[in-house]
Design a protein around this nucleic acid. Sequence first.
DNA 1: ACGACTTTGTGCATCGGTTCACAAAGGCGT
DNA 2: ACGCCTTTGTGAACCGATGCACAAAGTCGT
Lengths: 291, 291
Amino acid sequence: MSRGSLPQHAPEGRQPPAPEGHQPPAGQFPPDDRPADDRPPGDRLPDATVSRLPVYLRVLSGMADRGVITVSSDQLAAGAGVNSAKLRKDLSHLGSYGIRGVGYDVDYLIHQVSRALGLTQDWPAVIVGAGNLGRALANYGGFVTRGFRIAALLDSDPGIVGSRIGRLTVRHSDGLEDLVVRHQVAIGVIATPAGSAQAVCDRLVAAGVTSILNFAPVVLNVAEGVDVRKVDLSIELQILAFHAQRRSAERNGAPADGELRAVSGPAGLRTVPKGATRLSPAAAVGSAAEA
Amino acid sequence: MSRGSLPQHAPEGRQPPAPEGHQPPAGQFPPDDRPADDRPPGDRLPDATVSRLPVYLRVLSGMADRGVITVSSDQLAAGAGVNSAKLRKDLSHLGSYGIRGVGYDVDYLIHQVSRALGLTQDWPAVIVGAGNLGRALANYGGFVTRGFRIAALLDSDPGIVGSRIGRLTVRHSDGLEDLVVRHQVAIGVIATPAGSAQAVCDRLVAAGVTSILNFAPVVLNVAEGVDVRKVDLSIELQILAFHAQRRSAERNGAPADGELRAVSGPAGLRTVPKGATRLSPAAAVGSAAEA
DNA sequence: ACGACTTTGTGCATCGGTTCACAAAGGCGT
DNA sequence: ACGCCTTTGTGAACCGATGCACAAAGTCGT
């Protein structure tokens, strides 16, 4: 089982019909029937599974583009960087879409995973904040490819309003509520500075948005029933730093207090914070003891 | 207990306890003396804890800026959006830095968390890709504030090389290896298009980088010992879509296939409840079967 | 037609993380 | 000094996720 090259079963097969390529997930591979247990009705997908499905979907799409017809759990798992048993269990939660001894039909699986994730319908989204990040998001290809549609890109800065980003024109954020209602926006993306994030969030929620993707480095407070996910660059960096530190400590063979050394200097204590604002009225009490 | 207002112990000096306080760590967060058990040596932090520490750190910093001296686990947990027992257990992994009946000293806790995460040292990072995303990252404040320093911003496009982003000048990515070695870069941030990501990753790793933050929508293959974290916008969106779909299905009271209806568009994909084995052998390859 | 081979789907043991609930620890008021 | 009150730190039950290992199911070659 080479891992590098993907086998393409029945390359010459090519059934006569299928005037339409394999790309569209809404293909019609097995247009036949559906056993009653096709979709587990009451069974909710585990969170961990949901978070991996998009990865599988991406790998599958790449395979479909390369003309791969069938894929085994081992191959797909390798492509997605997970254990194959985990992959099979994940997929089994969607139903029993595999052929023993063969694997999974790529196009069909794409369709099933898309459906499970709710990507077979259209999700209008609004991006608030047209700074570098907002622009990056607006340009991001993956945004549009699958089910997502940017209804608008908003900003509160009059100097930015009116400029064009890709096919979008930046609109003033005053129109947020109206826009959400009119376009049935279900997803709000917050790409504003930290200071405005909570206010924007509140407005989105008040207007009826119940799914929010937050890029601002703050913890958002929302009412019950609103789903917030955050993407936080600095948190990821800090996690990386932790592992890097751990590795370097281990490598030095002095895990006990390898990095303690770095901090041991009395003067080293307050190097972390951004110096200035750090102070607190009585914080002096603490540091005074030392100084 | 109001949740909104944080107690701020009067700035007035007090704190009679002797300089060394009590042998336990916290007392008065003495920067000097340090009991042997100050840091659990062999005890590794759980991953889940590591991923939350940055959040605590951010909330704590905000509090410190507002002059808060002491914080209880309930307050900090509320600010970070987690269960207070979880927070206490997380912090307990770092050591026993709290005062029963009082809470945690904000500044001291900031220091301890920073140290645990490895932020007391400097982490030079390089950003590869100076598109919208790369620029957004370069401008991102949180980047520099804590321990991270952008050694360089690289791009392969001659049209971009030379332009200035904030205090940085975009340099050509040819110099990647040299730069990594010379600046002891430990962290690489990949903000390139998906197609170049793996190649960039390989070069970073070859040059000695062992921590990588990947923004490109691909699964990176790396050698053992290299730590890769990914930030993937489209995955987050798809997870949001899933929950939104689930909520909407539930609200409609027709959980069985409420959303199926909404999808029916594409040629009534599956409507034949006829009992037969799913997807016939040959159908796996083609789709001539029905149409 | 049949047996060898491939691959799925899953039962089960295990592990890590979450949460509850409470005893121990310490400050604070009287 | 003393008892009350607040809050930490953690034991233990619980829950979900992971990964192994294997029987069932299906394909393919002869």
